[in-house]
Design a protein around this nucleic acid. Sequence first.
DNA 1: CTCGCTATGGAATATACTTTCCATAGCAGA
DNA 2: TCTGCTATGGAAAGTATATTCCATAGCGAG
Lengths: 276, 276
Amino acid sequence: MDAVSAPASIEELLDRIMEVSDGLPKRLRQCADYVVANPDRIAVSTVAEMAEAAGVQPSAFMRFCQVLGFSGFSQMQRLFRDSYIPAWPDYSTRLEKLRQSGAGSPSALLAEFVEAGRLSLETLTRTIDPRTLDVAVKALSEASMVHIVGLRRAFSVASYLAYGFEKMNVPTMLHDHVGKLDSHHAIRAGDAVIAITFAPYSAETVALAEAGARAGASVVAITDSLASPLRPVTPLLLTVQEADFGDFRLLSATLSLAVALVVAVGTANRERQNGI
Amino acid sequence: MDAVSAPASIEELLDRIMEVSDGLPKRLRQCADYVVANPDRIAVSTVAEMAEAAGVQPSAFMRFCQVLGFSGFSQMQRLFRDSYIPAWPDYSTRLEKLRQSGAGSPSALLAEFVEAGRLSLETLTRTIDPRTLDVAVKALSEASMVHIVGLRRAFSVASYLAYGFEKMNVPTMLHDHVGKLDSHHAIRAGDAVIAITFAPYSAETVALAEAGARAGASVVAITDSLASPLRPVTPLLLTVQEADFGDFRLLSATLSLAVALVVAVGTANRERQNGI
DNA sequence: CTCGCTATGGAATATACTTTCCATAGCAGA
DNA sequence: TCTGCTATGGAAAGTATATTCCATAGCGAG
């Protein structure tokens, strides 16, 4: 064992972990991964707890500490205990404090948006009709290709959906209108279109959804109200109410809906393939 | 001694301390005062350390714990340690189970993701250091141009930031790598770069952040752990821990952080312009 | 002033944790 | 296939910590 000195700060420690982790045996690697992912637990845990959480024996965790240059777990723990930033007065109190700490300070703003995001998520489960969601998933999973369109602030959601579907091996086309290219002739019967738009609604998105409907594709709409111009286009309307802040729509709830769509469609597809 | 049950939460504990502290003898009063003033030390200290810091004997501190209804110091400490660790462990395993059980109807999935999103938001307020956030906002608002880079799943966040900054009249360039075009020479001294990447980290994003740093731009990193390759590049590291589900990173918390950045920078800019 | 009660400090004990050690399993090279 | 090395798990030893106990100091009441 190379007799190196113990890291003197958490930074140094992480550097050292990065440095050695490639040449580490399996169990020690598990320790490294766990520590990097959960550095906050070290200060308040025992070796036994850390080892169990990392899926190794306490002795293995000890060896890990020693490889890093510490005399043992206790020394490593001292590092974390000294630089321990308390997380509690638990959530609500902390949020309150954050908010009060200077009305317009960035962290006060963050607190606001976090709270708004939580509210949006709460309402999401209520406003989404399970049956509509089921039908939408079915339509998407049966489509030979999924077209996705969403511009301006909805573009984040569109790009995330495109990424997710691609990862799930679902044939996907993201209509990003780069170079003002409108590729609505790419949509065919048997395809599906996901159109995302919020007030003030984007004309291009609505146009593409309409073109898709005319071409015989199923259209799934993600929008913000029943007054959306997408309502005449399709019965598959997933409405998400999110807190607005001036021009800034929080997308927490919309993104969660997007992930749910992706995973649901992906697994449905897989099951269908296995079933055949 | 009145045989009351132990407080079940930190709030209850503090209530109880307030309640009894008037009728407490000198040394026990010292303990009460110290605990109320430094509750954050309890989770990471031993009785001996707490006692010394409070200026009493360990046995006195023990009596104090018992007066509050605890069996001893350990039980009281567990309260603080547990409250530090969020209900966040084995979230991915939970989702994995859900997925394997096949019972994942779309709306059940949605509920899971909503819950995961809420957790992510809660931890966000803890993992973000207000000072780092302040400095990051300052750097961004002083930049003559903000460059944004984030690829793959981080692209949603990048595009949202670009949209938001543009709306806020902040000069912005989104490095989207369309056509594999790498425009890193566009970054100059006095600019700022926001680099967003999550494990497995995208080499292009890191490269652009490095190029920015070399060019003399301030770099703000949005990433998922202290082990991120962006850590050597910049001290302005905003880490967001979010529940992963296979390849699917929920972005609720990251998006909230993005909105906070946009609004904070936007208003800072506006104030500066009015001030001049 | 004395008695009796409570508070206090320190030492003794018990417990829990860390750390080490050893036997064995696994693996790579001869 | 055998040999030697490394990795691993489990248990034992050591250490630190929590907890209890008791002797005594302090204090108020009679």
